[in-house]
């Protein structure tokens, strides 16, 4: 067992996957708590599909994926938030429109540029072999930004999440923080989507938050627990994908699903014991 882990850690692609994965899981789990509570869970899903579209375009045009994806997905995050806040089309419907349109455009561009290749399969379901060294550097820098901003604005984000109208009335620029949340989410998704897969990345956002809400009832406890759950599930998922030769992204999501069920059961038992 220990030998297997040791072998694993000596592989460069596993090292890279671990570094990027842990940082992305950490960012996603922190942002996820606010997104889930604000009923913005589907924004993650919408953005990852936009991400798929940008990856297809970048592949056909031979551009570096991250440099193209980041600005486009950030703009999409901006649009999604605007639409869901004051548009005539309501939030969930707007997300569905953007999700399907970007998937459709992505698929058309891919088929025009040479058809469905292993690349497309990798984008959809993720691959840990893709990470280059420059990807790792960029991921580290951006994740550190996400984490720092989250810690610095933690109290304000809690205020805006709990009660937007009160926050606005006390002079907190709620729209600014919503925007910050959307941009940080966009960055996290772009960083994680090639490894996790565009169809699976939103699991990283939603699962840890819901898992820890099953047991914990205080905001700080929920945040800390989802960070831990997220990182542990990622590591377990990655190792088991190596051991059982299963796809990495899917294994991480299944690890999250199992933890979610366990936490819900613990939560129910605790509630019964209290009564």
């Amino acid at each position: 067992m220990i030998d297997t882990i040791y072998d694993l850690l000596s592989l460069t692609f596993i090292q890279r996957a671990l570094i990027v994965g842990i940082l992305v899981s950490l960012s996603a789990s922190l942002l996820g708590v606010s997104l889930v509570l604000k009923r913005y869970s589907m924004i993650g899903d919408g953005l990852s599909h936009v991400g798929f579209c940008t990856l297809s375009v970048a592949a056909v045009m031979n551009w570096t994926p991250l440099y193209f994806s980041i600005p486009v997905v950030v703009i999409a995050a901006f649009l999604l938030l605007r639409l869901s806040e004051n548009g005539k089309i309501k939030g969930d419907a707007a997300t569905a429109l953007i999700t399907t349109s970007s998937l459709a455009i992505g698929v058309i561009i891919t088929s025009l540029g040479g058809g469905m290749t292993t690349d497309v399969n990798n984008y959809m379901f993720g691959s840990i072999l893709i990470m280059s060294e420059s990807d790792v550097k960029l991921s580290v820098i951006l994740s550190v930004c996400v984490l720092t901003l989250f810690v610095v604005f933690y109290n304000r984000l809690l205020a805006v999440t709990f009660d937007e109208s009160f926050a606005k009335a006390t002079g907190i620029r709620a729209n600014l923080y919503n925007m910050l949340l959307a941009i940080l989410t966009a960055l996290t998704i772009v960083l994680g989507m090639r490894m996790m897969g565009t169809l699976l990345i939103s699991g990283l956002i939603v699962f840890p938050a819901l898992t820890s809400m099953g047991v914990f009832k205080r905001f700080k406890a929920v945040i800390i627990c989802s960070a831990i759950v997220s990182v542990v599930c990622f590591i377990v998922g990655l190792f088991s994908s190596y051991i059982f030769s299963t796809p990495a992204g899917a294994s991480v999501v299944v690890a999250n699903l199992i933890t979610f069920i366990i936490f819900r059961i613990i939560g129910t038992i605790c509630a019964k014991v209290k009564k």
Partner: peptide, 24 residues
């Protein structure tokens, strides 16, 4: 303000909620 549906089962302690009024 009026309570919203989000708040009714919000996972936060009373202290955490009251502190959101003290940011200024």
């Amino acid at each position: 303000p009026q309570q919203t549906a989000i708040q009714r089962d919000f996972p936060a302690s009373v202290m955490e909620v009251v502190l959101t009024g003290c940011l200024k």
